[in-house]
Design a protein around this nucleic acid. Sequence first.
RNA 1: GGCGCUAUCGUCUAGGGGUUAGGACGGAAGAUUCUCAAUCUUCAAACCCGGGUUCGAUUCCCGGUAGCGCUACCA
Length: 537
Amino acid sequence: MPEILDPASPKPRVRFAPSPTGFLHVGSARTFIFNWLYARHNGGTMILRLDDTDVERNTQASVDSIFDGLKWLNLGWDEEYKQSERMDLHRKTAWTIFEKGLAYRDFTPAHTGDAEKSGAQGTWLFNPGARELSRTESDRRAAAGEPFALRFRVPRDGGQLVRFADAVYGEQVKAAADIEDFALLRSDGMPTYHLASCADDSDLRISHIIRGQDHLSNTYKHILIFEAAGCKPPQFAHLPLLVAPDGTKLSKRRHGPVVSVTTYRDAGFLSEAFINFLCLLGWSPKNDRENMSLQELTDIFSLEGINRSNAVVNFKEASVGRAPSPADNSQISPDVIPNPPRVVIPPLPHVVIPSEARDLGLAAAEDTFDPKALWLNAEHIRALPVEELSARLLPIVRAAGFDVTPEKMLRITPLIRERIKLLRDVLSAADFFFVDQLPPYDPAELIPQKGDAAMAMKVLSRAREVLAKIEFKHDPLDQALRAAALELGVKAGQMFQPIRLAVCGRKNAPPLFETLEVLGKETTLARIEQALAMTQQ
RNA sequence: GGCGCUAUCGUCUAGGGGUUAGGACGGAAGAUUCUCAAUCUUCAAACCCGGGUUCGAUUCCCGGUAGCGCUACCA
């Protein structure tokens, strides 16, 4: 419940007001973040309000999805409301406007749709005759039970102008004559978005409305409502839209799950990196800083840094886990599906055969997201203390079916920390630490650069001897294996590479000595043994 | 169709009447290391078009074009 604040308080009150008609997408998430940042920067209040006045399209699944996404963002909010529980207020506001003569009943049946829309020339402003209906006539028909919508009586003459100052887009002016008589109440008595939104913003004493630019032209209507209701309009700040690489607005149908916040979560983004990334779209600190912590963002965020042109989220379209579509032939529109299918999950190492396939699986996920988001995520991963990163990795590894102790994970983490861009990459980057049995690999890969099968044999058998009798610590391993290489007359690289392959099952892996140290003598020797057996065939 | 908003490298952006138009991601090349990654160095890459104002416009003004938004008893 709202705390009672001094109405003259300089502390801003902002709100994020999603309508639960689809999953939380990245554009909405950014709006939430900017509101939150503004509130926190100024010591204000962040309000979450579910704008659920469209009973037809609202779904509980969507509400869940929005909370899912916001929970992951982990920013929190101070107050929470649901518009559907405040309809008395909305209606009261509507009738107040009506009593002032600034709204009228329109008994015209609702537009049935696109029929006239396609062929429409010019702009529809109001239904003929409705505006002029006398109050007594209007009251009589209403009393007789005739359905009507309540419409705002937009001033039609005198060349009136509606104006407001937008913190981002500057002074905005529009001729009232160009604004249609929009509805306040539907014929079923339900408030419309415009009415409910303004009534609530005023009642909740919202000081700043920070929202998508798609509402810029709606704002004139809102100004009209605020004024008709006798309220002072809040400050407005419209945000440039986030669009897809093709320039169109983000949509699940067209662009797939990449537009959903939960996709980023499931792919292994750190929420702080995701937030950082979103902040850089349409806003700039103007000092070339890019990699920023939440605290830094909070400290330097300001409305002045917001720019006016749309920003593209540079993802690769539809390369991410396309809906398993033909299977689910649900009739609901794709935009309404609350939790889109997850990203292609890199196949589990112990299931997959060729290492190329593994790499491809990973590449698919990485190619999907905006490269900058990936880079920032990698930066944030590296900035995390090892303990923290390890703790975040562990549940992912376990969920993939590997039994790893926190202690072992903590030893593995420093080895892969600079090699992963997404948390999920741990599965492909550290797979060989988790499995008992390495997936099969081509024995030909054991052959070192500028070497042959004989050299591989020679190196591996020598390694087997040497490793059997030394301590598995970085320095001794380093010295012993280099010495062995010297004895055998091969280059260090030619010595290390067959061992790496035998032990990791692939060519690219973390540094050898650290790896052996974590893997331990027993596993290492067993894998070298296996490799030797393979080269013999 | 009407009304509105926007326009700097591929992408995110800084800048602003005179600049070698800056940074970042991504790309390319090189250095480095036992591979990969990380790191470092270097390179390629942009002011939508046309008028006007001005000694001088990428910057200011107008027009065009393009993109986007609104134009519902959706939000």
